[in-house]
Amino acid sequence: MSDKPDLSTGEPRSDSSGDAYVGLLTQIMTQTLDQDYLDVAQRRESSSGDSPPRWQVGAVAVLLLFGLMLGLAALNTAQEKPVVAAERAELIEQIESNQGKLDNQQATLASLSDEVTKLQQLLAANVADDRLLTNQLTSLGIDAGTLAVTGPGVEVTVDDSGYSVGESGGVILDSDLQLLVNALWQAGAEAIAVDEHRMTTLTAIRFAGEAITVDYRSLTPPYIIEATGDPDTMPARLLETRAGQAWLDLEANFDIQFEVVAKDKVSIPGDARDNLLYAEAKGAS
């Protein structure tokens, strides 16, 4: 390998030039020296003599340039390194802080979602409770008379006789109406109104001055009493009561109007009063 012909990298190339195909890698590995050096060297052997001095200067200049490039490249890289590293560090820092933020958000999201689910379940459960409460309010409201009701029932119309006021017997008294309402309850009424005044546990039928008052309001005859209940049995049951008998007597003897009519539908107003001043409930029903 010490003599020139052996060293020449041109030999494998001249061999391979005959070949149809030489692997690219093989070519790269073997042909590492510029062919030109060999060509020039062969030419020089025949003509002899050194290359002209201007090319020598060129070679030095090129080396100078190379040195310059080397220095610059080194300098550049050295300058860029901290910048690149800093940028990278900043990037990583941002990524990590974003990661942390996202983790926090996801934790918040999870707890929020939990809370919302619980609230929804609570509300759903409440809806059932509320329905129960509403049903209770409704059925108690009907019984207490605070809710207006509609249903089949009877309508009783009573009126004073044509006799002049003051003539005994011909005028309906508060006790007559009390007994009539009492008899209607007895006959199975569920709700009763006298001249559109709902009968509640607080409602009194009284006589004040010259007029009957219901719920502190004066009424004038004829009085219309409406009651919900079984329209088929109520009229008969009403007339069987002692009050019913008494009213029939009144009708027969004093020409007082007493008319009981079964109705498919009667509307009974509610009495909105539902606050108590003195009584307090002890224990729920």
């Binding site: 009584a279 307090e280 029903s285």
Partner: peptide, 19 residues
């Protein structure tokens, strides 16, 4: 509603009352 219910229980006699 509960307050009304309380009143209604007194009015309807479904709860004991005091006063």
């Amino acid at each position: 509603a509960r307050q009304r219910l309380e009143v209604l229980t007194v009015l309807t006699g479904t709860a004991a009352a005091a006063g």
